[in-house]
């Protein structure tokens, strides 16, 4: 019984990270109809940025969340302005955007290999190994911190999308960009901002993940897939849907440890994806666009 509560609590804590990770991917897909394959690359980049700031200057990884996200936002806007904007919209652009952003990811990966080598890295802080007891289970402080930050970020996003003009504009563009142009919404700027926002979320999630797990330049591929599973499960852009979907994925993964050898748990998320696609192609909650 104790083991089950342990696993349940760690599943909930993990879900926070998964939700943050997935939200950026869902946001970009919801608004631009583009799957940002560079999402995985930015997760990896965020992890390395936090690690580098910590290793070089001793900056606490949680403090570097803000500069790293801000930088990633700029990177996202630049990628949009420089590359993505030039692609055709619609069906043909779909394949091209996949290939293009995949190319960006490869470049980032190679840069990481050159700069930091292929070795596994971890961010080690004085409190990395500290744990607190909760309902008889010992859980690391880091996991709680990550969970709390993830909740805050999701809440902030929800407020941004529902309570501000910018959020309204983003949702409006997601629904119908042509009408937005008619009523004077700067669609191109909204696209750039959304792409930047999604990219910043990826880097933020990567940095959060880096406080918990070790990483190397290949980090991000499984994370991209997990994000995608959550997006498919939870529908696009719905904060509540994303949270529930993240919880489902985390629970399935965590409890799979009981039944499967460790190396197979990586495949669990994927099997879940295929199952969901077969049973409910529209996602568990149907296709809702942002809100």
């Amino acid at each position: 019984m104790g083991q089950v509560t342990d696993l349940a609590v760690s599943a909930i804590l993990l879900a926070g990270l998964y939700a943050t990770m997935a939200y950026g991917l869902g946001l970009i897909y919801g608004v631009l109809r583009i799957v940002n394959l560079n999402h995985g690359g930015m997760i990896m980049a965020g992890a390395y940025a936090g690690w580098w700031l910590h290793a070089q200057f001793g900056i606490d990884p949680y403090l570097s969340l803000i500069p790293v996200s801000a930088l990633a936002f700029i990177v996202g806007v630049v990628i949009y302005r420089l590359l993505v904007r030039r692609l055709p919209r619609g069906a043909a652009g779909g394949v091209q955007s996949l290939l293009l952003l995949f190319g960006v990811w490869l470049v980032l990966r190679n840069a990481a290999y050159l700069l930091f080598s292929g070795n596994d890295q971890t961010i080690r802080t004085p409190y990395s190994t500290r744990a607190v007891s909760l309902a008889g289970a010992f859980l690391s402080v880091n996991r709680f911190a990550v969970f709390a930050i993830a909740l805050l970020v999701l809440l902030a996003l929800h407020l941004l999308l529902t309570r501000t003009y910018l959020g309204k504009a983003i949702r409006a563009v997601a629904q119908n960009p042509d009408s937005c142009t008619l009523v004077g919404v700067p669609v191109e700027r909204i696209y750039a901002l959304t792409f930047g926002l999604g990219t910043a979320l990826a880097a933020l999630a990567g940095l959060l993940a880096a406080t918990l797990f070790s990483f190397n330049p290949d980090f991000g591929a499984t994370e991209l897939l997990k994000s995608f599973v959550v997006v498919v499960l939870g529908g696009l852009g719905s904060v509540a849907g994303t949270a529930v979907a993240a919880l489902i994925l985390a629970a399935v993964e965590v409890f799979a440890i009981l039944a499967l050898p460790a190396y197979l748990t990586a495949a669990v998320g994927f099997v879940l994806l295929v199952l969901v696609l077969v049973v409910r192609p529209g996602g568990l909650f149907g296709q809702r666009v942002l809100g």
Binding site: L83, R86, L87, A92, Q96, L99, L100, F102, G103, V104, W105, L106, V107, L108, R109, N110, A111, Y113, L114
Partner: peptide
Amino acid sequence: PQLYLGLYGLLLIFVILFEP
């Protein structure tokens, strides 16, 4: 050999952008 991923990536980007 240490640059192959980046070269592949750049090649993808350039072909898709300039001659899909």
